[in-house]
Design a protein around this nucleic acid. Structure first.
Length: 836
DNA sequence: GAAATAGCGATGTAGACAGCATGTC
DNA sequence: CTACATCGCTATTTC
């Protein structure tokens, strides 16, 4: 089918496609059009990755808009939301407006209402539906990307329920579900009342094979010799082989890139280091230069060991990729790989699920992964391996893609062929009938008025994929009753016979997008705090008066390690004597200010949110158990709730891992350097940001819950939230709230005697300039953001900075210690709020 | 005698959505 | 109930 023949699209679109070189639809796309995607028909497309699914979605959305409708594109990851948005923006010249809505990147509701295509994550859509976003009623077309993820036990039910709700709100809704090739696409089609297009077709051929001994055996029977020297590893040999292969006749690209999938972060890093030796030898001097620049950018993202290791690899043309990387690291690596500067990436599954990074050769090195519940190494799902292999073959660059599994012996080779190459992907199974999923979704369904009775809930659930699949009819009803009991017992719903209504707290919980169990934990903790306030305060005061004890037991350890605690950098007495009331750091011995210690403390609140099911906790390594048991007793008065007995193994263990996670947050909010934190907790920079982001969200929710049940805790909660948000001690909260001022600059300003925004408006400009390391543009921006009338630095002499020895000292030290993504340019410091 | 290497036990294990208010594309 | 690669260490061999 010719694109020129497509009917129902906005004028100019077929011509645009032709100009992009798309004159003929791919067979699956043509099938989709025949099935009526451009005429508003619902469709399930179960096709391989990179076979043009996105165009099917675009045709559906553009034709829907042309008919006067509005389209929603649901993605599983935030990173994909921005990728898709960028892709769809090429239609703007034909009058199509594109908007995005995700947790961290949002546009106002009114603005979205005016957009034609909206890209959002499934959770965000769920939340918008819960909160009755007005434009939801106007939708006429919904695309669900990667719909096979309904199989995911954690996030699948959200997609499933959300699609159900959207269809219920708008009975005529066109649903276009894009799926990888799965075992049972007909189930999905039946559930969505949609036509099914099923295809194995791909635009670039994919050869799948297994490497064993000195050759790869492919699924088409062909073989390719790849010799592995004695004592050498298979992976470097395969990477070198394809890098040296320029026999594709297409152009002089000097051979192809590889993606290597491994099963742990550590393996990804170790493998990348080894592969760097392979790639380094094959770089041109031009490439070396460009890679060196990228390596520097990587170092500028974060001053941590992970960052440094990555930069070293990248300089040599290799990289690793996993969730411990900061978002900026990831995109730098992905971009450089697409630009063919980085020749190989060793990655965990992040890359298979994330943004598009095609490669000439994909090597699935590890096909088993440790699984604690399983109790050992578990083979990956066929679907997952297929997703990885599907990354092989760069359109327009490679004659075909190659996906290679590794085997150490002939038996394994045969097993891999059976298990992954000849095998079809598993069927998708709904995970809806599990208590954690239903807890959230039943409450939301009641709260947003989708159902008012138990019967109504069951009726709604009857429309889900789960219902079309189950062969155990009573199960959903049983779990529903358990969940309703739970919700009632915790005061989120009230029941009157068959009727179910959400309480005021229940509405809040649903709106805040909290797992009800998290909300219950937070509410219990806050209530406990207000019941035990006096007693605990006395305990805390007692300790504070008793001795000049160190605030934290490990301070000595830190000192041994040559680490200077943030608190030690704070001048003992404020630089100006008047005391701004902004709250000083808790100094240990005799205090000259009123001892109005806040309660609950930040650590107590961090611990509270860390023990909710919405927080992914750090887990205890060997030796941690002792360390954190001790810490637990020491900080016990701060924890909100009774510490479980040490003999309650599981509960106690969870309590400790929550404490460990809380401590990470406390370190962050005590201005401990990023590299210090990564080292101490064995995490990557991306993990810190992830934890901080989640904590920020949960504390925000806690703040609102506190307002609802017991306002006495709202202030401490808000303060704790702002401390994680900015990564600062309490005295810096005001300064760090200024745009362009993060934890580092706030601390420097504070040390220069500028403690508040008001100070900043009055302060001597040369002092500000010196505190900001002589960066005039930055200083101007900061002053302007602080609301100063005359931010210009033109009249300030550079030499003034030299008059301030303290600040000069700071500059040198900061150069060494900066770990916060500060680049040496005027726009250097991102506000700590905008991760990701 | 220093350095390479083999052997051994301890160790640790993928991923990532969401509120709200604001600022930004 | 289940694994396995890596790391840091020591014992042993090698030049």
């Amino acid at each position: 089918m010719k694109t020129a023949d497509l009917a129902g699209l906005p004028p100019g679109v077929p011509e645009h496609l032709r100009d992009e070189g798309i004159e003929e639809l791919y067979p699956p796309q043509a099938e989709a059009v025949e099935a009526g995607v451009t005429a508003g028909e619902s469709l399930v497309a179960s096709v391989p990755t990179a076979s043009g699914k996105t165009l099917v979605a675009e045709l559906a959305m553009l034709s829907a808009v042309e008919r006067g409708g509005k389209a929603l594109y649901i993605v599983p990851l935030r990173a994909l939301a921005s990728e898709k948005k960028a892709e769809f923006e090429r239609w703007e010249e034909y009058g199509i407006d594109v908007g995005v809505s995700t947790g961290n990147y949002d546009s106002s509701g009114e603005w979205l209402a005016s957009q034609d295509i909206i890209v959002a994550t499934s959770e965000k859509v769920d939340s918008l539906v819960r909160n009755n976003a007005p434009w939801v009623d106007d939708l006429s077309c919904v695309v669900a990307d990667e719909v096979h993820l309904v199989d995911d036990s954690h996030r699948g039910p959200t997609l499933e329920v959300t699609l159900g709700k959207l269809r219920k709100i708008n009975p005529g809704l066109q649903v276009v579900a894009l799926s990888a090739t799965v075992g049972n696409p007909e189930d999905i089609a039946e559930w969505l009342d949609a036509e099914l297009v099923e295809s194995e077709w791909r635009p670039i051929d994919l050869k799948m094979g297994v490497h064993y001994g000195n050759a790869i055996t492919f699924d088409d029977g062909s073989q390719r010799e790849v010799r592995v020297g004695k004592g050498d590893r298979q992976t470097p040999a395969l990477v070198a082989d394809i890098l040296d292969d320029d026999g594709d006749g297409e152009d002089d690209d000097g051979g192809g890139s590889s993606l290597v999938f491994v099963n742990s972060r550590r393996n990804a890093e170790a493998s990348a280091k080894r592969l760097a030796d392979v790639t380094e030898k094959r770089l041109t001097s031009e490439e070396r230069g460009e890679l060196a620049e990228i390596a520097q950018e990587i170092r500028d993202v974060s001053d941590t060991e992970t960052s440094d290791t990555l930069a070293n690899c990248v300089a040599k043309g290799a990289a690793f990729h996993h969730a411990g990387l900061a978002a900026d690291h990831r995109s730098l690596v992905e971009d450089a790989f697409r630009e063919r500067l980085i020749k190989v990436i060793s990655a965990t599954p992040t890359l298979a699920a994330g943004v598009n990074t095609p490669s000439r050769r994909v090597i699935v090195r590890d096909w088993q992964r440790y699984d604690g519940d399983f109790g050992g190494m578990k083979p990956l799902d066929v679907l997952e391996v297929h997703q990885m292999m599907g990354r092989a073959g760069r359109p327009g660059l490679d004659p075909y893609g190659e996906a290679v599994l590794l085997a150490k012996n002939a038996d394994t080779r045969d097993e891999l062929f059976e298990r992954y190459i000849w095998a079809d992907a598993e069927p998708v199974r709904s995970k809806l009938a599990a208590e954690p999923a239903l807890r959230t979704h039943l409450l939301a369904t009641v709260a947003s008025g989708f159902a008012h009775t138990r019967e109504g809930l069951l009726e709604f659930l009857d429309q889900t994929l789960y219902a079309t699949q189950t062969d155990e009819p009573g199960r959903l009803e049983r779990v529903t009753d358990n969940v309703l009991d739970y919700l009632e017992a915790n005061g989120f719903v009230e029941r009157d016979g068959d009727g179910v209504t959400a309480t005021s707290v229940g509405h809040t919980v649903s709106r805040l997008y909290l797992d009800p169990m998290s909300a219950a934990e937070i509410i219990d903790g806050l209530r406990w705090a207000s019941d035990h306030r006096e007693e605990k305060l006395r305990e805390l005061e007692g300790e504070a008066d008793g001795s000049a004890r160190e605030n934290r037991a490990d301070a000595e350890v830190d000192a041994d390690a040559g680490f200077q605690r943030a608190s030690e950098m704070v001048p003992e007495e404020g630089t100006d004597a008047d005391g701004d009331g902004g709250g000083d750091a808790e100094s240990d011995d005799d205090v000259e200010f009123e001892t109005d210690r806040t309660y609950p403390t930040a650590l107590g609140l961090f611990h509270l949110v860390c023990r909710t099911p919405d927080m992914y906790q750090l887990y205890l390594k060997s030796g941690d158990r002792e360390e954190y048991t001790e810490l637990c007793y020491e900080r016990e008065p701060e924890l909100l709730g009774n510490t479980p007995s040490e003999y309650e193994d599981v509960r106690f263990e969870e309590w400790l891992s929550a404490l460990k996670t809380a401590r990470l947050l406390e370190d962050w909010a005590d201005e401990v350097d990023e590299d210090r934190i990564t080292e101490r907790y064995g995490v990557g920079p991306g993990d810190i940001r992830g934890k901080v982001e989640t904590a920020e969200w949960l504390l925000g929710a806690a703040e609102q819950l506190a307002g609802e049940i017991d306002a006495s805790a709202t202030v401490p909660v808000r303060e704790a939230k702002m401390r994680v948000q900015y990564g600062v001690r309490d005295e810096l909260i005001d300064l760090a709230g200024i745009r362009g001022v993060g934890r580092k600059r706030a601390r420097r300003l504070f040390e220069a005697g500028i403690q508040t925004r008001a100070d900043l408006r009055e302060a001597d400009k040369s002092v500000v300039l010196a505190a900001l390391r002589g960066r005039r543009k930055t200083a101007e921006n900061v002053l302007e953001a602080a609301g100063r009338k005359d931010p210009s630095m033109d009249d300030v002499r550079e030499a003034d900075a030299e008059d301030l020895p303290e600040a000069t000292f700071e500059t040198a030290k900061d150069r060494r210690e900066d770990g916060d993504g500060e680049a040496d340019d005027p726009e250097e410091q991102a506000s700590l709020g905008d991760f990701g």
